[in-house]
């Protein structure tokens, strides 16, 4: 990179593109190594939660991820907008 490149308007920095792509693919591939019980866990959570609130099957996701020495269980539930609890 020289100053001339700078003034001629250079393209988007490719290193940051690389980093973003890697972040996504590594997160995906790490979660592919998840234990077998996750689908069952997801199913049972859905059953319990739908007893109290309306929730769609595809609005709940369960992920397990290795972060350093820890395993993180991540649970995401999206509720329909019109139903605000309380």
């Amino acid at each position: 990179m020289s100053f001339l490149d700078y003034f001629l308007g250079s393209r988007k920095k490719t290193a940051s593109v690389a980093k973003d792509r890697l972040k996504l693919i590594l997160a995906h591939e790490r979660s592919a190594d998840t234990p077998d019980f996750l689908p069952a866990l997801q199913e049972e959570l859905l059953t319990v939660i739908s007893k109290y609130m309306p929730v769609e099957k595809d609005q709940i996701s369960v992920h397990m991820e290795r972060r350093g020495d820890f395993e993180v269980l991540e649970l995401n539930i999206l509720f329909p907008e019109q139903h605000s609890p309380g």
């Binding site: 990179m1 290193a15 690389a18």
Partner: peptide
């Protein structure tokens, strides 16, 4: 790395 064309050590 400085030119933004290689992943940095921190990345």
């Amino acid at each position: 790395v400085q030119g933004g064309e290689m992943l940095s050590l921190d990345d």
